[in-house]
Structure formats: structure tokens, C-alpha cells
């Protein structure tokens, strides 16, 4: 039973690159998050529909031409759960 994630409906995220990090302003909370790679890329993938961590990992691997690697999937899964706890994304159990 896998978890799926997606940006919150109606959410506005404003991103601004600051050398090594990206500042992300979340309109619904008024909170500024400072994130590192690959979080901006993950947020990009989550913008329109519910996807699970394997799908996100696969998209990132294609986008950045990474080797298929169990590590990538694990990193992505951990980041997704953090993003949910922070309230940046919605989560649901895959139907």
C-alpha cells in the first residue's frame, strides 16, 4: 500500500534561488522554507497530480540523467514524508 503525494490544492509556492539553497515561500502558511536539492525538483513533479515516491524518483532520474539506484528512491521517499509533515504537500493512500 503506497502513499501518494501532490502539492496542496490552490497552493502558491514562490521560489527564489540563493546560491546553494532555494527559498520557498508558501502562501497558505506564510512560512519561508529553505530547501536544498532535490527538493525544488520534487516539488516541480508534484505540481499537478498525485504520484508515489517511485514515480517521483523515476522522473528525477530521467530529468537529471541519474543511474537507477535504490538510494535515489529512498532519499525521495524520506523527503516526501518530510514535505507532508511540513504541510507543503498532501498525502493519500494509493487507491
Amino acid at each position: 500500500m503506497s502513499q501518494q503525494y501532490k502539492l496542496r490544492t490552490g497552493e502558491t509556492l514562490i521560489e527564489h534561488v540563493l546560491d546553494s539553497m532555494t527559498a520557498v515561500f508558501q502562501a497558505s502558511s506564510g512560512i519561508t522554507h529553505l530547501v536544498t536539492d532535490p527538493v525544488p525538483a520534487i516539488l516541480e513533479v508534484l505540481s499537478d497530480q498525485f504520484v508515489d515516491s517511485d514515480q517521483v524518483a523515476e522522473r528525477l532520474q530521467r530529468q537529471f540523467d541519474l543511474q537507477a539506484d535504490a538510494d535515489v528512491a529512498a532519499v525521495v521517499a524520506a523527503r516526501l514524508e518530510e514535505l507532508w509533515q511540513l504541510g507543503l504537500v498532501e498525502r493519500r493512500t494509493a487507491p
Partner: peptide, 26 residues
């Protein structure tokens, strides 16, 4: 100094950064 460090230190130096919301961020 790196931009992230400057940004973080300025948010700490601001008394109303959070209160201004998006306008403050921009």
C-alpha cells in the same frame, strides 16, 4: 558571505518579516 547566509541573517534581523508575508519575501 553566501546569499543563503545573508538571507537567513536578515530574516533574523527583521522584526516584521513574517508579518509582511509575500511582500516581505519579495
Amino acid at each position: 558571505m553566501g546569499q543563503s547566509e545573508i538571507f537567513v541573517r536578515l530574516t533574523q534581523a527583521s522584526t516584521n518579516y513574517v508579518a509582511l508575508g509575500e511582500a516581505g519575501f519579495r
